[in-house]
């Protein structure tokens, strides 16, 4: 039995503790936005947030997670699909096949959490997800655009 806080909901899940978080999300909770691709923590398709930081869910056994930790998946990134990255991605038509994009967006979101105005070098250092369709240049533009959208929104909130 695992007790996990996922997208703000405290859940008790009947599962073997060695099961990677990815498969609990996908098979037990129906949160299939988080993808399986490599299973060895390399490609980033399974990226989710644990306490705001990007982690590879495919190699993270649920036994390693505490109930106090906030797990966020692509489904929980925003209530209505309007996270600045989602807005920017839509504006720039970033995805191609789209399979890697939830992980890509979650990596980018973790970067923006710690660095609201990342440089190209910051993006190069932190967004290390594989995309075989080749969306990288639009991903880069999308992160910069999202940073701007976020800045505009916080300015509006302050005024």
């Amino acid at each position: 039995m695992a007790k996990l806080k996922i997208n703000g909901n405290m859940l008790e899940i009947d599962v073997d503790g060695t099961t990677p978080l990815l498969w609990v999300l996908r098979e037990q909770l129906g949160l299939t936005g988080t993808k399986y691709s490599c299973g060895i923590g390399v490609c980033g398709s399974c990226t989710v947030h644990v306490d705001g930081e990007a982690v590879r869910a495919c190699i993270l056994p649920v036994s390693a997670l505490k109930p106090s930790q906030e797990i966020t998946t692509i489904e929980g990134l925003s209530a209505d699909g309007t996270h600045p990255l989602q807005q920017a991605w839509e504006e720039l038509d970033v995805p191609q096949c789209g399979y890697c994009q939830p992980g890509m967006i979650m990596s980018a979101a973790a970067l923006l959490n710690e660095n609201p105005s990342p440089s190209d070098a910051d993006i190069d250092a932190k967004v290390n997800n594989i995309c075989r369709c080749g969306t990288f240049n639009r991903v880069r533009r999308g992160i910069h655009l999202a940073a701007q959208i976020h800045k505009g929104a916080s300015k509006r909130e302050r005024s």
């Binding site: 299939t32 936005g33 988080t34 998946t73 692509i74 990134l77 699909g81 991605w89 839509e90 995805p95």
Partner: peptide, 18 residues
């Protein structure tokens, strides 16, 4: 713009594996 973008941004898009 593409007609198939929005669902790819929220995890809603269903792939075969899903």
């Amino acid at each position: 713009k593409r007609l198939d973008t929005v669902d790819k941004l929220t995890g809603k898009q269903v792939f075969g594996a899903d």
